[in-house]
């Protein structure tokens, strides 16, 4: 695994963006980072829009913590951490769907489980007696360590998630906004919640590679929160959410190539800065911009 901090020995920033990018892409690890980062930003932007619409951001946060325990457990028994991530986030997601939407908004219970999961993850990590980098990359992401195999897995998982969203789009939107009426029109709430939670688990599992468990909000919630503030129509909202997630990811990767700080720091701070900017502008203009 590559060190998280950027390898910047022989690189200098030039004003020509294209030549900068070409220079970066000479390195396989940078190419993989851009490829996987792009897929993940698109998926997280789309799924994140529904997370925000459904007011599930805390549940999403908890899921990623369950994923941490799963990933650490998988490392402990010698499996790919992605397997542990998928198993634990899916299990947690289905449990939340089974308990109902109201359960997913119970902060205290979710917080309790979240803390337990993090504790479990810490135990697994310490039992593993491996490098601290293993825990570090799970918690904060390690996009520069993505292999070509990871890129393929990420792309397939991301494509699956997007196809699924297209298939259930209108029903998902209906249940997100108007559960009682959707139910009366023959939409199964439990089925829709379960499918969405599984998609969220999938998106979380692949997004952890980029920003890690602790910073999942940066890709899954903040871009969608910005989009929600700027748009009045769902498709426009999803588009803005994807664009923000993409720009932040590309910006983070680009900057971290020249400046020796973690990619996830640049991603989180750019989306945060944009969020603050949008809120400030809106408090001045009072009405939406778009």
């Amino acid at each position: 695994m590559t060190e998280l901090f950027a390898l910047t020995s022989n690189s200098n920033f030039s004003p020509n963006l294209w030549s900068d990018l070409q220079m970066m892409w000479q390195y396989a690890f940078m190419q993989h980072a851009f490829e996987a980062g792009t897929v993940i930003a698109i998926v997280a932007g789309v799924i994140g829009y529904f997370v925000v619409l459904r007011r599930l951001s805390f549940a999403a946060h908890a899921l990623s913590h369950a994923g941490f325990a799963g990933a650490a457990g998988a490392v402990l028994i010698g499996l790919n951490p992605l397997v542990g991530l998928l198993v634990f986030t899916s299990g947690g997601g289905l449990a939340m769907a089974a308990l109902g939407r109201k359960a997913a908004s119970r902060d205290v219970q979710i917080g309790t489980v979240l803390a337990f999961m993090l504790g479990l993850g810490v135990l697994f990590i310490s039992l593993y007696k491996g490098y601290a980098t293993e825990a570090y990359s799970l918690l904060f992401g390690e996009i520069l360590g993505i292999s070509s195999g990871d890129v393929i897995v990420t792309t397939i998982a991301g494509a699956l998630a997007l196809v699924a969203i297209i298939l259930i789009y209108r029903r998902l939107l209906f249940t997100s906004l108007d559960e009682d009426v959707a139910e009366s029109r023959g939409v199964s709430i439990i089925a829709m919640n379960s499918i969405f939670m599984l998609l969220l688990a999938l998106a979380t599992s692949i997004a952890v590679q980029v920003v890690g468990v602790l910073l999942i909000f940066a890709l899954m919630v903040t871009p969608a929160a910005i989009a929600e503030r700027l748009t009045r129509r769902p498709l426009a909202g999803i588009a803005v959410s994807v664009v923000v997630a993409l720009l932040a990811t590309w910006f983070g990767l680009f900057i971290s190539y020249f400046v020796p700080y973690p990619v996830s720091f640049f991603i989180t701070s750019s989306v945060f800065a944009l969020y603050v900017l949008v809120r400030l502008l809106q408090s001045y203009t009072r009405r939406g911009i778009l």
Binding site: I166, Y169, R170, L173, V181, G186, R233
Partner: peptide, 28 residues
């Protein structure tokens, strides 16, 4: 219904639209 969150920016027309085809599969 419970009161709608004052942060909810979705337009009324989209909401009414769901009454026509919110239970459809796929996109329009």
């Amino acid at each position: 219904r419970h009161p709608i969150d004052s942060d909810m920016r979705l337009e009324a027309l989209e909401f009414v639209h769901l009454g026509i085809s919110g239970n459809r599969w796929g996109v329009l």
